[in-house]
């Protein structure tokens, strides 16, 4: 094995992917550590994965459906809110944790070499058990309340995968920005808090005036959550709008990887 260390410009994609494959065990180990640490010395343990989205969903459905009278198309408002909330909760967790992941691990970064993209990426894996448990709970709820289950259900994993990809991409983006500009430590929680309301968690984009609707779909989670509703409840979904969200996700994924790669060289020097 020969390593040549020099100041090279540009990106050797094949080499990068090979290296990430070499370090895949570290990705799992770091994810396992985060997951373990999150629930040590808690009484309710993993139950928190259900409690948190459930209570937020109840609250949101109260605000949007009882107060603002949003249409849930005859679906139980809490179930309706919960289907959006589990995806949003995962997304918010991964992006929030990912943003600070490099700063938190600065000791490691300054002492050991590894592909640093693993740090924000591992947050997407560490939050998966939470997502799955909340999902199982939601599906139980769903099968109890739903007499008719559509064929669209088999597409649900696709939307979950899109959730993971978009959360990971944004986490990667923000972690790299946060290294250079610590302002993102304040910006990201703020954006996530606003996102809770501008993402159609307890309402649908049908309630949004037609001419503004495309703006909502610039938020990748809008397309994903509408997609989840489509697969679970067969609610109508406008494909043209949906593809705006998909395009945003793909763009975030590619640019996130490239931008991180550009920043990575200097992380240890400026952190």
């Amino acid at each position: 094995m020969i390593t040549v260390i020099e100041n090279k410009k540009g990106l050797n994609l094949k080499q990068r992917i090979h290296e990430l494959n070499e370090y895949r065990e570290l990705l799992w180990t770091l994810a396992y550590r985060d997951f373990r640490v999150k629930y040590t010395q808690t009484i309710l343990g993993i139950l928190w994965a259900v409690i948190e989205p459930l209570f937020t969903a109840v609250l949101l459905s109260f605000v949007f459906n009882k107060v603002a009278k949003a249409n849930t198309f005859g679906i139980n408002p809490v179930l309706f809110g919960l289907t959006g909330m589990i995806a949003w909760n995962y997304f918010a967790n991964v992006v929030g944790q990912g943003t600070g992941s490099l700063i938190l691990a600065q000791n490691m970064i300054k002492k050991i070499y590894f592909p640093k993209i693993i740090l924000p990426a591992s947050k997407a894996i560490a939050a998966l058990p939470d997502l799955l448990i909340a999902l199982v709970f939601t599906l139980i709820f769903y099968f109890i309340y739903r007499d008719h289950v559509g064929f669209n259900l088999i597409y649900l994993p696709v939307f979950l995968l899109l959730t993971i990809v978009s959360a990971m991409s944004l986490g990667i983006w923000f972690s790299a920005l946060n290294i250079r500009y610590r302002d993102f430590r304040h910006i990201v929680p703020f954006v996530i808090r606003i996102g809770l309301f501008v993402t159609p968690i307890a309402y649908t984009t049908m309630d949004v005036p037609e001419q503004f609707r495309w703006i909502f779909y610039l938020n990748p989670m809008t397309g994903i959550i509408e997609g989840i509703r489509w697969s679970l409840f067969g609610l109508q979904m406008d494909c043209n709008y949906f593809f705006i969200s998909i395009a945003v996700i793909i763009m975030l994924f590619i640019t996130g990887f490239l931008f991180f790669n550009k920043m990575e060289k200097n992380i240890a020097d400026i952190i």
Partner: peptide, 19 residues
């Protein structure tokens, strides 16, 4: 730090044969 790839050199190079 350069040999362990933690930080990059500005110029010049290092060749390491082995893990």
């Amino acid at each position: 730090k350069i040999l362990s790839k933690i930080t990059y050199p500005t110029s010049g190079k290092a060749i390491l044969k082995g893990r």
